[in-house]
Amino acid sequence: MTNILFICLGNICRSCTAEEIFRTMVHKAGHDAAFHIDSAGLINYHEGELPDKRMRSHAADHGYYLTHRSRPITMADFDKFDLIIAMDERNRDNLLSMAPNEAARSKVVMMADYLQHHEDVTIIPDPYYGGAKGFELVIELLEDACEGLLLQLTAN
C-alpha cells in the first residue's frame, strides 16, 4: 500500500480537494486497496473544520464531495506517509524545514510535478482570496495532476 498525504496551508481548499479527486480516481481505476490517502495543513487555524464552502460548492459541481475535516500535519506523518505532496513552494519549503531527517525530506514532492497538460504551471495556486475562476482553476489543475500521479504510481 502506498500512503499519500496532500499538503497546503490550511487544509481547507487545495489539499482536501486533491485528496478527494485522487481518491475518486483511485476508486474508478479499481485500486482502492493500493492506497491510503489523506490531507493536512501546515497550520492548525482551521483544525476540525470542513473545507471552505466555496471549494465544496465548486467541487460538488464536478462530482466531488469534500467531507474531510482540517487537521495540521504531525511529525508522525513523516514516518507514516510515502509521499508528502505540497501545493506550492512555500508549502514545500516549510515541509522540508520540518522534516526530521533526510529520509523524510525525500518524501516531499510538488503536486505540479505530476501535471500532464499544463506544462508552464509550477504550483497549485491558493484560491482562498480570489473568485470563482480561482477555485475552478485549482480543480482543473488537480484533476490533471492527480491523473498524472495515479498513472505514475500504477505504471510500476
Rank of each mutant, 00 (worst) to 15 (best):
L5G: 03
L9R: 00
G10F: 10
I12K: 01
C13N: 05
R14K: 12
R14Y: 07
C16P: 14
E20D: 08
E20C: 11
F22G: 00
G30L: 04
A34H: 11
H36N: 14
I37E: 11
I37R: 10
D38Q: 01
S39H: 00
G41W: 01
I43L: 15
N44E: 14
H46M: 10
H46C: 08
R54S: 10
R54V: 07
R56S: 11
H62K: 03
R69V: 10
R71D: 06
I73E: 00
D79C: 06
D82S: 06
I85Q: 00
E89Y: 14
R90F: 13
N91V: 03
L95D: 00
A99T: 09
P100E: 06
S106Q: 15
V108I: 12
V108N: 03
M110L: 14
M111W: 04
Q116E: 12
Q116R: 10
E119I: 13
D120K: 12
D120E: 12
D120G: 06
V121F: 04
I124F: 09
I124Q: 04
Y129N: 09
G130C: 10
G130S: 11
K133A: 13
G134F: 05
L137E: 11
V138E: 06
V138D: 05
V138A: 12
E143M: 05
D144F: 05
G148Q: 05
L153Y: 13
N156Q: 04
